[in-house]
Design a binder for these strands. Structure first.
Lengths: 339, 339
DNA sequence: ATAGGCTGTCGAAGCGCTTCGACACCTTTC
DNA sequence: GAAAGGTGTCGAAGCGCTTCGACAGCCTAT
């Protein structure tokens, strides 16, 4: 274990000089700098993280709270996590992975112990227990997601309300008048997860404005659940010709079932998905979709946090504008039978 | 920021006594302990992580290196990561998330700086650049995966060779003589990822022993790639009746295509998947599969690491025995046409 | 020439914790 | 009743780094 002092001795300077070479907080002559850097290389010196954290009260670590559940929107979570880790590194930060399991205690523990300088919280519920702690905390934080009350918080999210509106608009423009929404699992709504409710709100509002009938059905992932849900939908609204799907693990089952029932996509029914682009293009029908910009969200969260840590930046809600990409799963509504 | 000293003063004892109450490394009388614990609670004291790390040269952090790519076996990675984080917490450790991006440098940085006490490395290639560093390092590490040379390393993985054998056996027992293997994307084999090659090895060896013809085709995920691959397979081996799929994102496309071609599963062709159970049960045909025990792997990795950190434990290769669960996608081979 | 301002470097004082040796006190034991 | 052995507690010495004030040396402006 090489220490600062050893580097200093090797380079023939004082410890503080080495420290200033490393941090750049005071000017150092070019020759000294080079000598020190040479010594650092030769000795293979790495500053001790603990000592650094203690002396500077900065750990250079960002905590990332991810949901514990592995049963939903996994690829999105993973992509965000990786984007956060990658982007954080470019700013000199490491990422500490926390699961939602500990709940609010994790916030206390991490901020209390100085383990992390800041925090990114995912899977935010409308009235999340962690919010009061984050508001009080002197450490900056960014939410990925949108709670009911955003005062005193910084949030980054896709504008799900606009996303919902966009989906309805697209289908309405194509002439669809009866639209079914296949949502996330019921548990997601019960937990009042912001994005699910906001999408629904956007869907409903725009549907009302456009005079389109809308039927919303939460749905577990998987084939069997989808089959049951679909049956109920056609039972209740036989004239349904448009679908909006916001549930990755329902996408392929839906397509398979429609095919099996002899309903052609997009000739008989149109499908719009809200999912990462990768899912949309890999599906058995290339899906018209609104992308969930996971990487972008992760990146923006980190950049806001870094700005705050640098004393720049302020509380702010960033809603990314949704973009609908037309692919092969949507087309004009079929003319009503018998007219 | 409450400090140890403040707690000590509040409880009317010395700082070292508080420290010993916290660590339990020396006996403390019940009354003193209670008094100290009371003060800790009243003041809301959290030990400073940096100071602790500096003084004890233990950070209580485990680093987890995950692959950067988000295009393959994502759910497995996510599940492992979450299992690692959860299990680590039960042992008093936090988890630092590193992406493979930095490569071997990340190993140097983390072990050199004392940021983490130990390391879990995922997505190990047969001749991984990081291995020499891990072998030399004085910090313990566990690989999830199996490189070519495991000497001086601790590894946890599913026994993919046995997995391959198991799949072939199952199909052979049902009378299938022509089996096609739909593998991971070509890139996975090019990188010489251990698990893919070992599965293939197990498949081939057992197939030879049982006198079964085997055709292996790597395959990108998605519908189009699968369609092309499947066409080539039936072109080359029209009598193929058994499939082994080791590629989550090829599963559903395969089933859809078979259905579309009028080949019934399992009446005409049988399919065995190597994938997490969740994928197997959510597929449009409930798949006979060998599960990838992601949680178990994460848990075992952490437990080995903790054992090593406690001075117990030794280098060891743990191969989890595969288990095949029969579901609705495999059945007896159809009798050859015309016989 | 001299005051004033830069620049580059150093020494020393912590940051908050762990841990080692010391020691006071209380039991045992013969 | 003294020696031996436990307990429970304290004080002090760091752990390796950052950062503040000091200051030597030099340049510029008067």
């Amino acid at each position: 274990m090489v220490t600062l002092a050893e580097v200093a001795q090797h380079a023939g300077v004082s410890a503080s000089t080495v420290s200033y070479v490393l941090s750049g907080k005071r000017s150092i002559s070019a020759t000294t700098r080079q000598r020190v850097e040479q010594s650092i290389r030769e000795l293979g010196y790495h500053p001790n993280a603990g000592a650094r954290a203690l002396a500077s009260s900065r750990s250079n670590i960002i905590a990332l709270m991810i949901p514990l559940r592995t049963d939903m929107y996994v690829p999105v979570m993973m992509e965000i996590a990786i984007a956060v880790a990658t982007c954080a590194r470019t700013h000199g930060y490491d990422v500490l992975l926390l699961t939602g399991e500990e709940g609010p205690d994790a916030v206390r523990r991490v901020t209390g112990s100085g383990l992390a300088d800041a925090m990114i919280v995912m899977d935010v519920e409308l009235h999340d227990e962690r919010l009061p702690l984050l508001r009080e905390s002197d450490r900056p934080s960014v939410l990925i997601g949108l709670p009911a009350d955003t005062s005193g918080l910084t949030c980054v999210d896709l504008d799900f309300r606009a996303t919902g509106a966009l989906c309805v608009e697209h289908l309405a423009t194509l002439g669809h008048r009866d639209i079914a929404v296949i949502g996330e699992a019921p548990a997601v709504y019960e937990r009042h997860t912001g994005f699910a409710e906001r999408t629904l709100d956007g869907l409903r509002t725009r549907a009302r404005e456009l005079g389109v009938r809308l039927l919303h059905r939460p749905c577990e992932g998987g084939y069997d659940a989808m089959a049951a849900t679909l049956a109920r939908i056609f039972d209740e609204r036989p004239d349904t010709t448009g679908f909006v799907v916001q549930n990755e693990s329902a996408v392929e089952p839906l397509l398979a079932l429609l095919r099996q029932q002899g309903r052609a996509v997009p000739e008989d029914v149109s499908v719009v998905a809200v999912c990462p682009d990768q899912v949309a293009v890999q599906a058995s029908v290339r899906l018209t979709s609104v992308a969930i910009p996971a990487q972008e969200m992760g990146r923006r969260a980190v950049e806001h946090l870094v700005a705050k840590l640098d004393g720049r930046g302020d509380d702010e809600v960033v809603l990314l504008a949704p973009e609908l990409t037309e692919r092969a799963s949507t087309g004009p509504a079929p003319s009503p039978a018998g007219s």
